[in-house]
Amino acid sequence: MIWVPATLFAGALQAWRTAVQRRVSKGMSVNAAGLVRYLYGLPFAVAIAGTYQWVIAPLPHFPSIGSHFLLFCAAGGIAQIIATNLLLMAFEERNFVVGTAYSKTEAVQSALLSVVLLGDRLAPLVWLGIASGVAGVMILSTGGKRMGPRELFRAIGQRCAIYGIASGLFFALTTIGIRRATMEIGTDDHIRAGVLTLAATVLIQTVLQGGYLVWRERDQVALVFANWRVAGQVGLMSSLGSACWFTAFASAPVALVRIVGQVEIAFTMAFAHFYLGERMARSEGVGLILVAIGVVLALAGAL
């Protein structure tokens, strides 16, 4: 059950990283902001993998790596880049609330893809938990605005909704790719599989995103290095959070990890309420309750 604490830590670290990244991403393009995460996260990702592999839990021999390991790392990494860009495109549309809400269907899409592509079998309680959690997160994503199921359904043909659904799909594909990559490592140690996959994936993302930036947005390169102190914090939080996510993906069905991982939004709300002093709308309280119910049901179904 290492995936449960790993997922909870991942949610908390990701909420923290998101808050810090807002400070460093101002004035940057979408691709430059993405490169900050990967470039500054790469040294930490390599250090985490190396420390675990050779210091914390040393092995006499390096674990065997399957022939498709790098392929699945690349697939997961590229899917994450595409998903992030699609989500930002949804934000740029007039009704960004709809785009955000539909991007939260990621948990459902992850569950369906894991059943089809990985052969996972989920208990009925897990499916109920997924439904409750997704409903709660969609309510929270409206930011307290009055937007019921009818309004969301009517908006399904809008570009913001299409971008949101597509973003959720590629985030789901990210989890499938990472899960499959960890299965290519010949070890029963889920932490080892997770951190080794993390280092390889972030390296691929850095090369791809960095190469694109130099090729198409060379003026943004200087901005990536301008605020390196804060960017370093983003890289550290991103790598620690991803190490937890990847460990969880290596040890449990991705659907369970994603539904429990929705506690991230609860951490984000708590940060906004207690640290930034933002008020919480009544509908947001309902959304948090649904997320909590979803997590409980998913855990009960997993036992």
Rank of each mutant, 00 (worst) to 15 (best):
A135K: 08
L169A: 04
M89S: 13
R180T: 15
G34H: 06
S25F: 07
A123T: 03
G241P: 00
A181R: 01
F153E: 06
Y38A: 09
A83V: 07
A272C: 10
Q205A: 12
L88C: 07
Y38E: 01
V234G: 00
V108E: 09
S67M: 11
A123I: 01
W215S: 11
L70D: 01
P149V: 05
G164M: 10
A199Y: 09
E92A: 15
V24C: 01
A101E: 02
S103I: 03
L117I: 14
H68L: 14
A252L: 06
A161Q: 00
F246K: 09
Q14W: 11
V263C: 12
V115W: 13
L299W: 09
R282I: 08
R37E: 02
Q21T: 01
G194H: 04
A172R: 06
L59W: 03
I139W: 12
L213R: 03
Q21D: 01
E264G: 03
I56Y: 10
I265S: 06
V286W: 14
V207N: 03
R216K: 15
G129C: 00
R218Y: 10
G133I: 11
Y38P: 00
K26A: 13
P5D: 02
I191T: 15
A266I: 15
T187Y: 10
I293W: 04
A181S: 07
R192V: 06
L240N: 03
L125H: 02
E184A: 02
D219V: 06
H61D: 12
Q109E: 05
G50A: 14
Y52F: 13
I81N: 06
F96R: 14
A172I: 03
V214G: 05
N85H: 15
S283V: 10
E217L: 08
E93A: 13
I162K: 09
L288T: 13
F69H: 03
V4T: 00
P43D: 03
G99F: 08
Y52N: 12
